[in-house]
């Protein structure tokens, strides 16, 4: 009984589509049968199985990116009802209809909802978001990390480079070269590590290059949008403090 009642319900989608990186975007409406517990990804899978739009015309299935389906990989970021978030964690029951789905246009659109997040990985390389331990001989164990520090550092390590903070930021756009909140927070993470700390100046100097930390305008949308609840604005302010200190130390030559 309940299944027939559920089957009569339907879910409406308005999806912004784009056939390839050069062409203009357009919207297409879809209407799908409701299933309990469905999320945006399962809805997109349904469109893939039966690629018909709301008018009943057969259309090309909508393309999207996804991987882990449990909000840890960062691949399925898209703008859902105006806010960037992970599609796998966007439950249909909790969304207002019609559900509007758009790609995160801060990044180059590859096709439909698929975007190219390369700039984020380039940013991680730029700020050297790793701990150099390679050598020609065994360097032995590194210094220990205090448990208290490990606990907050762990929160920063949850960043999945999903790009939601860059999409929400008013200062990440085609007119600026701002690196974005994610990479700044990673500098804080790797500078907090007892071994990573040995190279902290390199990372701070990377943040003091063009398009570095100075691009932050304190709108604080990033911290409100981060799906992992990372204290991004605290990280940025902390790095502001460290770059300021580094600036004066370098000037004074101490």
């Amino acid at each position: 009984m309940s299944q027939t009642a559920a089957a009569s319900k339907s879910v409406k989608f308005i999806i912004t589509r784009q056939d390839n990186p050069e062409t203009k975007s357009y919207t297409e409406e879809f209407e799908l049968p409701y299933r309990p517990g469905m999320n945006v990804i399962s809805a997109l899978m349904e469109i893939q199985r039966n690629p018909k739009n709301a008018q009943g015309q057969t259309t090309a299935p909508v393309c999207w990116d996804s991987n882990c389906l449990e909000e840890v990989c960062g691949a399925c970021s898209m703008v859902i009802n105006g806010k960037p978030r992970q599609a796998c964690a966007a439950l249909i029951d909790k969304l207002e209809q019609p559900i509007r789905i758009q790609p995160m246009k801060t990044f180059p659109v590859v096709r439909d909802l698929v975007i190219d997040r390369s700039r984020m990985f380039t940013a991680l390389k730029r700020v050297k978001a790793w701990i150099p331990i390679d050598g020609t001989y065994d360097l032995g164990p590194g210094p220990k990390m205090a448990e208290k520090k490990r606990q907050w550092a762990y929160e920063l390590s949850k960043c999945m480079t999903c790009g939601v903070c860059l999409e929400a930021c008013p200062n990440v756009n085609e007119k600026t070269d701002f690196i974005g909140p994610a990479a700044i927070s990673q500098v804080r993470l790797f500078n907090a590590h007892p071994t990573g700390e040995m190279n902290k100046e390199e990372r701070l100097e990377a943040l003091m290059q063009d398009g570095g930390i100075e691009g932050c305008g304190n709108s604080q949308n990033c911290v409100r949008s981060c799906p992992k609840g990372i204290p991004l604005t605290t990280s940025i302010a902390e790095m502001n403090k460290d770059t300021t200190k580094h600036l004066f130390k370098r000037w004074l030559g101490v």
């Binding site: 105006g82 756009n173 600026t176 305008g217 604080q220 949308n221």
Partner: peptide, 22 residues
């Protein structure tokens, strides 16, 4: 120049801090 660079988005993110940003 800074004002020109911002992509103001208070419509989608009407948070107090973002409003003050704009």
């Amino acid at each position: 120049y800074i004002a020109y660079q911002a992509k103001n988005n208070v419509g989608n993110y009407s948070y107090e801090r973002n409003i003050r940003f704009t």
